Amino acid sequence: MKQEIIINLPIVADEVPKLRELVGWDGRYSDYPTLFERCNFWAGLRDEENKLIAFGYVAGMGLQHGYMEDIIVHPEYQKKGIGESLVRKLLQEAERVGLEIVTLTYDSKHTFFYTRSGFTPCSGGLWRRKD
């Protein structure tokens, strides 16, 4: 695949939710297009048929710190280096816009992937609203 990961790739609102569902996540259709308006930047990749196959974003105040989320690669394109390229592209953009810290949370089974992509594992916490 010779396509390039693009910062702020034009994306139709339902493309990301459909990609989320392909990897087994909730689509969160109501989050889009609002997410594009509120995050600092995103990155995406399309295949030769113009189908969205990778997506991720960084959100935050745009000052010193950003939070990376939703690193998604279509199941048919996983294990080909696309995810790592996506993360690195987002980190390059974070550096370009002056972010000094980017954090994310991930399942421990992905520690090697994120370490290889430039992150240092550290402890943290999670608060979740009770339904």
Rank of each mutant, 00 (worst) to 15 (best):
residue 1 M to C: 08
residue 3 Q to S: 12
residue 5 I to P: 12
residue 8 N to K: 10
residue 8 N to T: 10
residue 8 N to L: 10
residue 10 P to G: 12
residue 10 P to L: 07
residue 10 P to C: 09
residue 12 V to T: 12
residue 14 D to W: 06
residue 14 D to L: 11
residue 17 P to I: 08
residue 17 P to F: 03
residue 20 R to F: 14
residue 20 R to N: 14
residue 21 E to S: 06
residue 23 V to M: 07
residue 25 W to Y: 10
residue 27 G to E: 07
residue 27 G to Y: 02
residue 29 Y to H: 11
residue 30 S to W: 04
residue 30 S to C: 03
residue 32 Y to W: 12
residue 32 Y to Q: 06
residue 35 L to T: 12
residue 37 E to K: 15
residue 39 C to Y: 01
residue 40 N to S: 14
residue 42 W to I: 02
residue 42 W to G: 01
residue 43 A to I: 08
residue 45 L to G: 07
residue 46 R to C: 03
residue 46 R to M: 07
residue 47 D to H: 04
residue 50 N to H: 10
residue 50 N to E: 14
residue 57 Y to K: 10
residue 60 G to F: 10
residue 61 M to E: 15
residue 65 H to N: 13
residue 65 H to M: 12
residue 66 G to R: 05
residue 68 M to P: 04
residue 68 M to G: 09
residue 68 M to T: 08
residue 72 I to E: 03
residue 72 I to S: 10
residue 75 P to A: 11
residue 76 E to V: 05
residue 76 E to K: 13
residue 79 K to G: 01
residue 79 K to A: 13
residue 82 I to P: 06
residue 82 I to R: 03
residue 88 R to C: 02
residue 91 L to E: 05
residue 92 Q to H: 07
residue 93 E to Q: 15
residue 95 E to M: 01
residue 95 E to W: 03
residue 95 E to F: 06
residue 96 R to N: 14
residue 96 R to Q: 09
residue 98 G to Y: 01
residue 101 I to F: 03
residue 101 I to K: 05
residue 102 V to D: 02
residue 102 V to F: 05
residue 103 T to R: 01
residue 107 D to Y: 01
residue 110 H to G: 00
residue 111 T to K: 12
residue 111 T to F: 00
residue 113 F to Q: 05
residue 115 T to V: 00
residue 115 T to F: 03
residue 117 S to E: 03
residue 117 S to P: 01
residue 118 G to S: 05
residue 119 F to R: 01
residue 119 F to C: 02
residue 119 F to Q: 00
residue 120 T to I: 11
residue 120 T to Q: 13
residue 123 S to T: 09
residue 126 L to V: 13
residue 126 L to W: 06
residue 127 W to H: 06
residue 128 R to M: 13
residue 128 R to A: 12
residue 129 R to K: 15
residue 130 K to L: 15
residue 130 K to M: 13
residue 131 D to N: 14
residue 131 D to F: 14
